[in-house]
């Protein structure tokens, strides 16, 4: 589904990604872990098309298309979803309105009829139950006055409504208490399916207790230093990121 080859990117003049290689197949869940400043968020942003990072080399193929040639909204309509680390507030714009506009923009792109207000409300209310969210949040402005946990839930609500093919979750666990983490994980797990892939970007192993990844990659200094199964995350939890750095110095490269 997604094939990243020797991806390099800079923010300003500073090289952040220095040659990322990653293959993600449908049905797989990949966790990308790494210390602060390792390039995790830049990778998420580059995949989603944010313009603050400049791609300086490599390629990304998504469902047979050159992903880097697509505009942000085209990627979204092709099924790429980014759950933000810091969801933005949009004063005055109702949550329900944003969601409906987004869903219909995507449906239109896929040649599906747009949902009318009634059908949309039925759908979204159903998904809100899954996320244990109060219906009143539909009518509040997007993320305005939401607590940290509410914002994250709102991100996952958008995800379960939009049903993306490839979901990228950027530090979704940060700022969540254990109850919220369970609800968010439940929402994410409900989307796991053989034709959908996910990339979990996280600093901590905690999230992976609730969302079991198929593969774990350790990102450090702009490169994937190690890849393995779920046991790699546990190793990281025990040893910390320091040894990844040490191994890097010793010249260990990604398998």
């Amino acid at each position: 589904m997604l094939s990243i080859k020797n991806l390099q990117a800079s923010v300003g003049d500073k090289p952040i990604l220095k040659g990322i290689n990653l293959d993600v197949k449908a049905g797989e869940v990949h966790a990308i872990m790494g210390p602060n400043g390792s390039g995790k968020s830049t990778l998420s942003n580059v995949l989603a098309g944010r313009e603050n990072a400049t791609v300086t080399g490599g390629s990304v193929t998504y469902q047979g298309k050159d992903l880097l040639a697509l505009a942000v909204e085209e990627r979204a309509r092709e099924g790429i979803f980014l759950a933000f680390q810091y969801p933005v507030e949009i004063p005055g714009v109702g949550n329900v309105y944003l969601l409906k506009a987004a869903l219909n923009a995507q449906r239109k792109h896929r040649g599906l009829p747009e949902l009318d207000a009634m059908d949309f409300l039925a759908l979204v209310k159903d998904k809100m139950k899954l996320m244990e969210m109060n219906e009143s949040m539909l009518y509040r402005a997007v993320n305005e006055g939401f607590s940290g946990g509410e914002k994250k839930r709102n991100e996952i609500l958008q995800m379960v409504v939009l049903e993306p093919s490839l979901a990228i979750l950027d530090e979704t666990d940060s700022g969540l208490d254990i109850d919220a983490l369970k609800v968010v994980s439940h929402g994410v797990n409900s989307l796991r399916s053989p034709d959908r892939a996910m990339i979990l970007v996280t600093h901590y192993q905690r999230l992976l207790d609730y969302i079991k990844p198929d593969f774990v990659h350790v990102l450090s200094d702009g490169r994937i230093q190690r890849s393995g199964g779920p046991e790699l995350a546990l190793e990281l939890e025990r040893e910390g990121y320091a040894w990844v750095g040490n191994e890097t110095n010793e010249g260990v490269v990604a398998p």
């Binding site: 989603a48 098309g49 944010r50 313009e51 603050n52 505009a71 942000v72 909204e73 990627r75 979204a76 309509r77 979803f81 980014l82 933000f84 810091y86 969801p87 933005v88 949009i90 004063p91 005055g92 714009v93 309105y97 944003l98 506009a101 987004a102 869903l103 923009a105 995507q106 792109h109 402005a141 958008q158 939009l162």
Partner: peptide
């Protein structure tokens, strides 16, 4: 820029995103 990026990441065109933000 983050508001615009957010709206576009959800599938809205830049123009619709601006309209929506201004309207809000």
């Amino acid at each position: 820029e983050d508001q615009l990026f957010f709206c576009r990441q959800r599938g809205l065109s830049a123009e619709d995103a601006v309209s929506m933000i201004v309207n809000g």
